[in-house]
Design a protein around this nucleic acid. Structure first.
Lengths: 333, 333
DNA sequence: ATGAAAGCGCTAACAC
DNA sequence: GTGTTAGCGCTTTCAT
C-alpha cells in the first residue's frame, strides 16, 4: 500500500515534481508521461498522504463538529446533514461530544484547533458558563447550529422557534384553553428561552395571565417529561393543554397522562416540537413542529464553507422555517 | 494564535529541539529552562501543530468511523461510546456515513486511509455486495461493530442476538402462541439473519412448523413497521404475537395494531429489540432486548486500540450480553 | 515539458 | 542540558 511520491519518482524515472503534477492532473505534463505515471501509481496502489498535503498547504479540508448532545436524535439528524454537505465539498468531519459541559467544549475546541481544522461547527453549550468570549477570539470561521449565544447571534443558523411557539400557544388559547402547561427545556439551551418567550407572549396577547407554576422545566428527555408531568398532575396543577419543549418530553408526558387516566386530546391536548421520525407512529400520532433537521446541518456547513473560502465575509444570522404538523394529540387543524 | 517551535526558539534563545522537549515535558531539560519556555509558549498562546506531529510520527491519533446508518438512534448511542473511549485514550474520530451503500463505504475507507487514520471502526454494509474482500487487504487495524461479515467474524464486536431471539420466540411458544409474526430486518444487516435464525430454531425446538409468510421483511424503521404490519393484517394473516427486529419497527407495528382494533398485549403480544431510550415511555411501555449500545462502542474502540498498539495481536470475536426487558406489550415475565 | 531545491512544523538521532 | 541536522511526504517557486 501507500508508497510515496519519492518512490514513484524513482520507479518512473521522473522527478517528484512531475509525478506530483501528473497525479494532480495539471496540464503542463505531457499526456503520455501523465498516463505512464498514473498507471504506475495505480499498479502499486499508491494513496496520496493527505497529512503531508495538509501540512504543506496549511489547510486540512477538515472541519471540527462540536456537539453538546449527539445522542439526541434531533442532533443526530443535524449531523447527517453536515456530513452530507461536507462530503460534497470534499471535506471531512472530526466529531467531538461535550455532554453540555462548557469545560469539555473549551477543551474540544482547543484540541481541534491544534489539529488545524479549517472551520468549526458547534451545537454550543448555552447558559451561564458558556464559551462565547473564547469563541470571539477564534481566528478560524465558525457557525453555531440550532442555538445562539449572546453577542454571537450572527454566527447562528436557527429556526423560527419563537414564532412557532407563539403560534401554538395562540391556537391553544383560541381553542379556549386557559391553563396551558409548558414543559420547558433546560435553561442552558437557548431554544428553551425562545420557546418559552413564544409561549409567554402568546398568553399576553390572548389576555391570559402568565403563571409561573404552569411552566415546568425538564431536561429535554422522555424520562423527565414523564416524571415532571406526573408530578404536575399529582400536585393538582390543573391544565387542559400541554406545549412540550420537544417530542421526547412529549412522549413522557403522554405516558404520564395515560397512567393518570387522562384522555388525549379530549381531556388534555398535547403538542411537541422537533417532529422526530417516529412521532407520527406513536399510539397517538404526535402533533409537533417539523424542523428541517438535516437542512439545518447542510445550511450551516454551506455558510461555514463560504467563510472558509472568503475569510473577510461578514456573518449574518440564518433562520430556517419550520412547520406545525397537526395530528392526533391536538383537536385543532 | 498558533506560532511555531521556530518562533518560540528565536524568542527564547533556545534551540527548537530544547523547546520541543520542554513543551513535551521530557526530563532532560533543566527545570528553569522548561519553566521559561512554557511560560513564553503560554504567553503567546502557542498551540502545537498536530498535523506536523502526525506527519513526523507517522501516527495521527485519529480513527476513522464508518457508519452505515448514524441517524439510527441505536448507532448514535454506539458512536457516543466510541467517542467516549477514544477521548480517554487521546484519540479523535473522523466520522463518515455510508447510508448502507457499499460503494460509498469503499470510498470512505480509501479516503480515510489517505488521511492516515491509525485504525478503523465500521458498522459495515452487509449483504451481497459487501467490502469484506477489500477489508482483508487493509494494513491498519479495524473492527466491525454490531454486525459481522463472512470471513471476518473475528473482527466483530457483537451481542448475543441469536440467543435472545431464540429465547423470546421460545417464551412466546411456551405461552401457547403458534402464530408468531416476525417483522424481520433487511437482509443486508447481519443481525437480521441472526435474529431470524433464533426465531426459526426456537420454532423448531417447540415443534411449531416454520411458515414463510409469518416472516415479513422491513427496512428497520417505524414507517415500514407500520405499513408491513398493516398489510399483514389486511391480508388476513393470523398471528397472536409479534417478534420485531427492533424497537422502531415495533413502534410502527403497535400503531398498525391499534388502528386495526387489536389490543396489546391481550390480542397480540409484541416485543422489540435494542431497547431505545424512550421505549419505556410509550403509551404501552415496550418489551424489548436491552443491548448495551454505548458499551458496544467502547469495547470496540478498546479492542481496536489494543491492535493499534500491537499490530501482531490476533483478532478474536467479542460478544456482549444483552438482557430481555419485559414490559407492558407482553404478558409473560 | 521537466527538474532541483526549499520548506510547511514537528521529532529523533547524534553530537558535545 | 542543549544544539545541529535530517527527514516525514507533499507542493511550489524558479530554472532550464
Amino acid at each position: 500500500m501507500a508508497g510515496s511520491l519519492k518512490e514513484l519518482s524513482e520507479l518512473s524515472g521522473y522527478s517528484m515534481n512531475t509525478v506530483s503534477r501528473a497525479l494532480r492532473d495539471e496540464d503542463d505534463v505531457k499526456p503520455e508521461t501523465k498516463a505512464a505515471i498514473r498507471n504506475l501509481a495505480q499498479q502499486m496502489g499508491y494513496t496520496p498522504n493527505r497529512v503531508a498535503k495538509s501540512l504543506r498547504l496549511g489547510k486540512t479540508n477538515t472541519i471540527g463538529v462540536v456537539s453538546a448532545d449527539s445522542a439526541n436524535p434531533f442532533f443526530a439528524e443535524v449531523i447527517i446533514g453536515i456530513e452530507d454537505a461536507a462530503r460534497s465539498r470534499n471535506h471531512h468531519m472530526l466529531l467531538v461530544n461535550t455532554e453540555e459541559d462548557p469545560a469539555r467544549e473549551l477543551e474540544a475546541i482547543e484540541v481541534l484547533l491544534g489539529r488545524q481544522v479549517d472551520g468549526l461547527l458547534l451545537i454550543p453549550v448555552c447558559g451561564e458558563r458558556n464559551n462565547s468570549e473564547y469563541l470571539k477570539t477564534l481566528s478560524i470561521p465558525f457557525e453555531l447550529i440550532g442555538r445562539w449565544l449572546p453577542g454571537l447571534e450572527e454566527h447562528s443558523v436557527l429556526t423560527d422557534e419563537y414564532e412557532k411557539a407563539n403560534e401554538i400557544t395562540s391556537l391553544f388559547a383560541k381553542n379556549g384553553h386557559r391553563d396551558i402547561l409548558h414543559l420547558s427545556g433546560p435553561t442552558f439551551v437557548s431554544g428553551s428561552l425562545d420557546r418559552l418567550r413564544g409561549y409567554r407572549d402568546a398568553l399576553e396577547e390572548a389576555g391570559i395571565p402568565f403563571r409561573d407554576n404552569l411552566v415546568v422545566m425538564t431536561d429535554g428527555h422522555a424520562e423527565d417529561g414523564y416524571h415532571k408531568t406526573y408530578e404536575a398532575i399529582q400536585s393538582e396543577l390543573n391544565f387542559t393543554a400541554i406545549f412540550s419543549f420537544n417530542d421526547l418530553v412529549a412522549v413522557g408526558a403522554l405516558r404520564a397522562l395515560k397512567e393518570c387516566g387522562y384522555r388525549v386530546p379530549k381531556d388534555v391536548e398535547v403538542i411537541g416540537f422537533d417532529d422526530l421520525d417516529y412521532s407520527r407512529f406513536l399510539h397517538l400520532s404526535l402533533s409537533s413542529v417539523r424542523i428541517p433537521k438535516q437542512q439545518l446541518g447542510r445550511v450551516a456547513f454551506e455558510e461555514l464553507y463560504e467563510h472558509m473560502r472568503d475569510k473577510s465575509k461578514t456573518y449574518g444570522r440564518r433562520t430556517l422555517e419550520s412547520r406545525i404538523m397537526f395530528r392526533e394529540t391536538t383537536l385543532f387543524d
